[in-house]
Each structure stands twice: as structure tokens, then as C-alpha cells.
Design a protein around this nucleic acid. Structure first.
Lengths: 142, 142
DNA sequence: CGGTATCCAGCCTGATACTG
DNA sequence: CAGTATCAGGCTGGATACCG
């Protein structure tokens, strides 16, 4: 990265460093956000909150297979990113509501487009995989 | 999953099993494809092939930081899914070209939309994270 | 050049147990 | 109810060495 430090000095770095960003850093951030999409649980959780607020336990039941630990971790991360909001009601027994923020909603919309793509092409991809697996040397140690 | 094997028999599974799909399976497939997007290297590799065919070594140099092993693995997976094509030229020294298929191109387009979203909101998200980190108990063991 | 094979450290995750 | 703490294991991915 930034491998151009051979001879002629690094050219004109912007004077005000506050506004400066290497496109590499931008790339990393984008990649990081994209990684969020690929995360096993994040979109599932977000999807559940699409049109209603849910409590912790409701989410736990709604997202099949998630452990309490992973749900907590996922929720924390999404809350940190500002994708959803956490509201703890001081009561006994405790009650915590989770809801999508507007930012989270826009993300969900964008992801929906990709999910549509995936859904539209999943048969094609499945066929490709089968063809590949039958065509290519599937390990013959015999 | 398929936890409904308690009493009243599994109801009317479609006669022609070829067309049958549980929406749960569909969900898994979509999730699996989404995971591809979140993969650290996949989109980087695909991105490099956006408008030109590249050789293995060129890709290796283009995608900064990827190990030979990971590049191979990533390429195999993408080839298996039919997202890119691999062409080995029988010559000495060997030469292998990788190119996006039309399927791969459509994926890239869809991902681009999401990347735009990520790019547009990365400052906002970064701010959210900073606020969260300063606001919330960052572990005070002192 | 374009891989494959092997080893191995680190992280992620699930299971389990406990708490306000 | 809504978490936190702890631990074991499995899988991922890097480093290295070697092959056609």
C-alpha cells in the first residue's frame, strides 16, 4: 500500500489534515461495512426489525439458532454503528426494546436489492456448483 | 430445524419434489451468497476483474495483502459459483487468465450499489462508533 | 508461473453457568 | 428477563516448502 515512496517525494498531501483521507482508508471502511452484510447474524437480526420493535427475548426466538451470546454481540455492534437503537425500560422484570434507526432502514433497503439478486440467481449458482463438482477431480485417493 | 415432528404428520409435501423448496433452504442459499459479499477477498478480486482479464500473478499483485493460498481459494470458489472463468493456456511458462462471467458482472453491479451506500455513510457510522465508545463504559478496571 | 501440501497460531463461536 | 463470564474446540487464514 502506498508503494510509491521510491524517489520523487510523496506529492502534495493536503494542508489541512482533518479533511485528508487516503482512499485506502476509505476502502477499508467500506470493506468493513460490507463485512457486516456477510455476517451470519446481522442481516437476520436487522430483517426481524424491519417493521416492528422487538424485545431481546423476541429476537432470540425469531432468529432461529442464534445463541444468547451471539445475539448480544450482534446487537451491540449494530447499536454501536447506529443501525439500531436500544431502549432499556427501568422495570422489573427488565425490558429492553430494539428498533431500527433510519440509518438501519436505508441499509436494509440496499441489502434487499442484493438479496433479490441472490434469490434470483441462486438456482443458477447451485447448478454451476454441481457442474463444477462433477466436472472437476473430486479427489480420488483410492 | 424442521422441528415440527411432534404429532400430526408433516403436511402435504408437494407431489413433485423437484419443484419443492422450503423457504428455509432458500434463505440459507441467499445467506450463503451474501456471505460471499462479506468475504474479505472476494469482492476485491472481482473488482479487479471489472474491466479486464488478469493473470494469476497480476491479481496477486493487484490485491494487496492477499496470500497465494487465499487467492487460489478465492478464485476456486468464485469459479465454482460461475462468477468468473478460468482459462489455462498450455504453454511454458504456464499462463492462466481469469475473467468475470456475465453473472459475475451483474453481481458486481449489485454490490456496487451497496458499496455506494457504505461509502456514503461511512463517516456517519464512524462518528456513531466514536460516540458509542466514548459514551459507554470502556472498561475501567483501575 | 501457477499452483498444492503441510503445519500451526489465533479467533470466533457455542455451551454452560451465574447475576441484577 | 436480559444479560455477563468463562472455557473448550473448530475453523480460518498466514507462513513455508515444494511440484509440474
Amino acid at each position: 500500500m502506498a508503494r510509491h515512496n521510491t524517489s520523487h517525494a510523496a506529492p502534495n498531501p493536503p494542508a489541512d489534515a482533518t479533511e485528508y483521507e487516503s482512499d485506502e482508508q476509505a476502502c477499508r471502511q467500506v470493506l468493513q461495512i460490507l463485512a457486516l452484510i456477510g455476517d451470519k447474524w446481522s442481516i437476520l437480526v436487522i430483517g426481524q426489525l424491519r417493521d416492528r420493535t422487538l424485545r431481546f427475548g423476541e429476537l432470540h426466538r425469531a432468529v432461529t439458532g442464534i445463541s444468547q451470546r451471539m445475539l448480544t454481540l450482534t446487537l451491540r455492534q449494530l447499536e454501536r454503528d447506529g443501525l439500531l437503537s436500544r431502549t432499556a425500560h427501568p422495570a422489573v422484570p427488565p425490558r429492553v426494546d430494539y428498533a431500527l434507526t433510519s440509518l438501519g432502514t436505508t441499509l436494509l433497503d440496499s441489502v434487499a436489492a442484493l438479496a433479490d439478486w441472490a434469490n434470483a440467481h441462486r438456482h443458477e449458482i447451485n447448478d454451476n456448483r454441481c457442474r463444477y463438482d462433477t466436472t472437476h477431480p473430486p479427489r480420488l485417493p483410492s
